[in-house]
Design a protein around this nucleic acid. Structure first.
Lengths: 235, 235
DNA sequence: TGTTCTCCGTCAACACCGCTGACATAATCT
DNA sequence: AGATTATGTCAGCGGTGTTGACGGAGAACA
């Protein structure tokens, strides 16, 4: 039944639902993102989405082939939002740092979508724009092409990897997320000094540090290492 | 009904199932891993697991409180396999590199399971052993505790993030994986020079580099940056 | 050996999920 | 005004995780 989806630009008849709502792909995407944001990861189901829209759940399938299709659309939206309003400053390090943090937080704002979409290569316009921007920063900074590509690869995959990892933590059902966090206090903080001396010695640091994302620090490490590889004549 | 789970060491009565199988937590974990490996992540349902075991699906709940509980056990098993047989050499950089690559490849050996498990904190024995080992390497090398903990955090999450990312690529259905790869050749290699000059200039490098995992290079960058932060008196 | 106790595998059922084919009707076109 | 058809609605399929009740098999003790 995939053929019932009509591409958005060709839509002509917009029949209101019983509850008087006029649907559109954009409205569905916005509603879905709001649903995830307000009611947690597990709220994004077709039935609840239908209820939130004020329409029969199956109406969603007039706009997206499947929930996966909807999630890819959400992902494209997220990439767009991450890049939205960004302009290069000319300082390659600050620029890369800003892009990385933008990607990370854009995905984290919608963990459920991020989880399912972070590892896809879409080739759509928002993605290619981001790739072009990052490569541009690196090549303009003076990295030779082979090095620029390797750093680009490491940078992007690190950003997406951390985004997916941290999104996964947020996307967990509340109970599981609680459990994950409490492991550090209830388990790691109480390990025996003789069997786990290094954990015992740093337990207080671990329990506070593991509450935050490791991404900003990891990003700084990557930028440090990249800076050290920048050819001397480019500095 | 969480109380019906009896810890493995206290189990005394092992009644065979109707099909004559004697259950155990270990058997269930092995079967689950095999199931995921052979039939993909979506095959890991309680009902299919029961069928694969030769037991009623609900019997699984006598060994694990929930599917999430089972997943954590799977995650710990993978960590254990990654650490299996590893011994520190005394060279902190080589040791960390070895551990990172081991984690990465252990997860990639079971991509579908890795996808589900990479982002969980288990607090179980194999995990604590790995944490202890990594912290030991860093502290023995001479990193002060706060720095050791931050580097530990970045190192572990980077390894797991890349593992999940690369596992996701391997776990895709063959058709989708082909499509993802072809995006680089069919889409990025053909972008206009005027709209995407940087991509166009490096397309040949991109198409070959994006075929590999970016993890080894990203790991080297992280180790470079860590080495630069090692206190002078410790070198 | 016989009895009791209780562990644990089985069963049926609940509430939810994604998704589909058939249907009805309102919005557009001729 | 009438025909067409896009699209919202409905009922329902086959799946999911999970649970409470039940009963038979193993162990423990006499």
């Amino acid at each position: 039944m995939s053929e019932r989806v009509v591409p958005e630009p060709q839509r002509r008849r917009r029949r209101p639902t019983k509850q008087g709502v006029v649907l559109s792909a954009e409205l569905i995407i916005d509603t879905a993102l709001r649903l995830v944001e307000q009611h947690g990861a597990e709220a994004l189901t077709v039935r609840r989405l239908g209820a939130a829209l004020g329409a029969d759940p199956s109406a969603v399938y007039r706009y997206f082939h499947s929930t996966d299709d909807l999630l890819l659309a959400l992902a494209d939206e997220l990439i767009g939002r991450a890049q939205d309003g960004w302009r290069p400053t000319g300082d390659w390090r600050a620029d890369l740092r800003a892009i990385g943090l933008r990607i990370h937080s854009a995905y984290l704002a919608h963990p459920q979508a991020a989880l399912l979409a972070a590892h896809r290569t879409t080739g759509r316009s928002h993605e290619t724009a981001a790739v072009e921007a990052i490569l541009g920063v690196l090549r303009t900074a003076g990295f030779p092409d082979p090095e620029a590509v390797r750093i680009y690869h490491a940078f992007v995959d690190q950003s997406l990897g951390f985004a997916a990892l941290d999104a996964a933590a947020l996307a967990l059902p509340a109970a599981a997320a609680d459990a994950d966090l409490r492991v550090w206090q209830a388990c790691y903080a109480r390990l025996d000094t003789t069997t786990h001396p290094h954990i015992a010695a740093t337990a207080h640091l671990l329990t506070t540090d593991m509450r935050r994302s490791g991404y900003p620090y990891a990003l700084d490490l990557l930028l440090d290492a990249a800076a050290a590889r920048l050819p001397a004549e480019a500095r």
